[in-house]
Design a protein around this nucleic acid. Structure first.
Lengths: 218, 218
DNA sequence: TAAACGACTAGTGTATACAGAGGGGGAGGA
DNA sequence: TCCTCCCCCTCTGTATACACTAGTCGTTTA
């Protein structure tokens, strides 16, 4: 693998996992020595991170990891609603109904997964990803896909701010089942509406964990 | 200005103006000599172009300018509808009504502009840009703004494929007036609907010019 | 005559050296 | 004692050299 690719993946993972928290200054020499690559491929990695909005120029003095907190959740979910509703609508019009009715069944019987151990939860998260992948493929739109991928990077980073609980995961599974069902039925309007519902529920849950955190901290 | 910035702006302009048509291979040594910069800043410029989807890796052998034709218009406008409808909705909720009612008036009296000479048309295009800027500011969403900016790069490139005529520009001015009016009225649903109408009309016009071109060519 | 293997060439990927700019610290003056 | 100015140091931006890989062309063998 190329050195620039290794440096990019390493920094990406560290930023997404908050090992490099917002505000961290990424100096070129320091990071290139730490990651064992020279400055040239490291600069390429930093450039890619900046293009995705994960880092920002720091007044000609290296780059800093961009801020991200629950204060950004509203903005992020506004973009998410625009993109994912459109994606669900298009998938409803163009997707293979069999694929999505199968996914709907799996989500409907996912109660065991979300209340199980970590391995079972892992299975649930991979099921969510399979729905995302199916929608990505069904909507058949490269430009929309690129915007969605760019959005998801920020969502992954924000996920670390939330604490999922079994009740929320169970409700989430039902919402996903509704989305898959609407797409399987070819109902674009319903698919968009189900997505809107799901995103609003997710956002509300995210904000409620913030209040809990504040109360715990105080 | 930095050498990488100069190289980026030069290549961007040439791609947007189709002086570097789709399929053009951008070899590092060749382009760095042509633009008068060394390979290092040129690579940075190529990286930025690739991040925006204007170039793509060419099997480890340089990069090529990505394809773009009217065949991509449907996909591009699907993303455009998702983003711009959301933007118009948010602007209707958060924008300053005075700003948009003023823009509405200007669009309503734009008949003289669109039927004038090139300078008058330039004034019209800058009026459209002022509406876009006002929406960008009013929606107050950095993530949505970033996606919109990324989309607009492709729209600029595609614009060269269309031929505007006075009738279409006049209708376009009326559609823009409706959008501005809906935002000024604070009606998010109406703003989104007006945007949908405008985009569908634009897309239809774009496709009709394709048919004319085909008939002219045959 | 056709196919396969090897060598040469061109072009990318990486490392490193050098120059310029900006910030911080120290010293001097008010 | 505080403020200001200047110098130095560190870090970025750029250029260039080197290595490695892939592709193409020519030659040889079946």
């Amino acid at each position: 693998m190329r050195a620039s690719e290794r440096a990019y993946l390493a920094l990406l993972e560290e930023i997404l996992e908050w090992r490099l928290p917002p505000g961290t200054i990424l100096a070129e020499v320091e990071q290139s020595e730490r990651l064992g690559v020279s400055r040239t491929p490291l600069r390429e990695a930093l450039g890619r991170l900046a293009a995705e909005g994960l880092t920002a120029a720091h007044n000609g003095r290296g780059v800093v990891v961009t801020e991200l907190s629950l204060d950004h959740a509203d903005e992020l979910f506004e973009l998410r609603e625009a993109l994912e509703c459109k994606a669900a609508s298009l998938a409803a019009r163009r997707g293979n109904p069999l694929v999505f009715s199968e996914l709907q069944k799996e989500f409907s019987s996912a109660a065991a997964l979300v209340q199980g151990d970590d391995a079972a939860k892992g299975n649930y998260y991979s099921l969510v990803q399979r729905l995302d992948d199916a929608i990505d493929q069904a909507m058949n739109n490269a430009y929309l896909l690129q915007s969605l991928k760019s959005l998801r990077v920020h969502l992954v980073r924000m996920r670390r701010l939330a604490k999922d609980n079994p009740e929320r995961l169970l409700a989430s599974a039902m919402e996903h089942a509704n989305i898959a069902g609407a797409i399987a039925a070819g109902d674009a309007q319903l698919a968009a509406a189900c997505t809107t519902v799901h995103l609003n529920q997710s956002l509300n849950h995210l904000k409620s964990t913030q209040h809990q955190t504040e109360r715990t901290a105080s």
